[in-house]
Amino acid sequence: MQILINTDNHIGGDTKLIERAEATISSVLDRFGDQVTRVEAHLSDQNADKGGPGDKQCVLEARIAGQQPVAVTNRAESADAAVGGAVDSMAHLLDSRFGRLHHTKGGASIRHMSPE
């Protein structure tokens, strides 16, 4: 799974922030490595230099093999918290998506059961 981190002009895209974001994404979403080909994180500061509550935003987009990409958004006080919240939301979304794909409703049909 490839991980890309993008930042706007108001969030310093220093190597420490990028490494922390990659580590957070990797630690939570690695279990989807077979299904997810790429994850992109877009970090932005909604209020620029003004500050304020919940002004850091992380949009997380996951490219799923053979399906349309999915995205989640999270706002928080810091870039790290925004990434953490977005990753948790994405994990929940992917659990739901892949759970539905691999779950058969009910179970074996009575028509296909062998007589004993």
Rank of each mutant, 00 (worst) to 15 (best):
I3H: 04
E19N: 12
K16S: 14
A108M: 03
T15A: 14
H112F: 12
D49R: 02
H42T: 01
E77F: 00
H92Q: 12
A86I: 03
G51K: 10
R63C: 08
Q67V: 01
A91Q: 14
K50E: 11
I64Y: 01
L29C: 03
Q46P: 05
L94S: 08
R75I: 03
S26M: 13
D80I: 06
G107T: 00
T104E: 08
E116I: 08
D45T: 00
I25V: 15
A41R: 09
A91P: 01
S114P: 05
V70R: 10
G13M: 08
M113D: 04
A65Y: 05
L4E: 11
V59Y: 00
M90T: 07
H102R: 10
E19P: 07
G84Y: 00
G51I: 02
K16T: 11
N9R: 11
R63L: 13
A108S: 03
M1W: 10
N74A: 14
L94F: 14
T37P: 06
D45F: 06
R97W: 13
A82D: 05
E22M: 09
E77S: 15
L43D: 07
D8Q: 04
D49M: 06
A71G: 02
S96C: 06
A108Y: 01
A41D: 05
L17V: 06
A71Q: 14
L29I: 08
R63V: 08
L101G: 09
Q57N: 12
S26W: 14
L101M: 11
L101V: 06
G12Y: 09
T73M: 11
L94D: 11
H10E: 12
I3V: 15
A81V: 00
A71W: 03
L93D: 07
L43A: 05
K50Q: 06
R111M: 10
A23C: 04
F98E: 05
R31S: 10
E116H: 09
K105G: 05
D30A: 12
D30L: 13
Q57V: 14
E77W: 04
I64S: 00
V87L: 12
M113E: 03
T104N: 00
S26A: 07
T37I: 01
G52L: 11
G106M: 03
S44H: 12
G52Q: 11
S27A: 14
E61A: 12
R63P: 00
G52V: 12
I5Y: 07
L17N: 14
I64P: 01
Q67F: 03
I64G: 01
G52H: 07
I25S: 09
P69I: 10
S89F: 12
D14H: 15
L93K: 15
D55R: 12
D80V: 05
H112C: 07
K16P: 02
Q67D: 05
K50A: 14
L29D: 06
E116A: 05
E22F: 02
R100I: 07
R20N: 15
L101H: 10
E116K: 09
L60D: 06
D49Q: 08
Q2L: 03
N74K: 10
D14T: 10
A65E: 14
A48K: 11
A65C: 10
E22L: 09
H92T: 11
A48P: 02
L60I: 00
I3Y: 09
D55E: 05
P53R: 04
D95R: 13
I11F: 11
L101C: 02
E40A: 15
A108K: 09
L4P: 04
V39H: 09
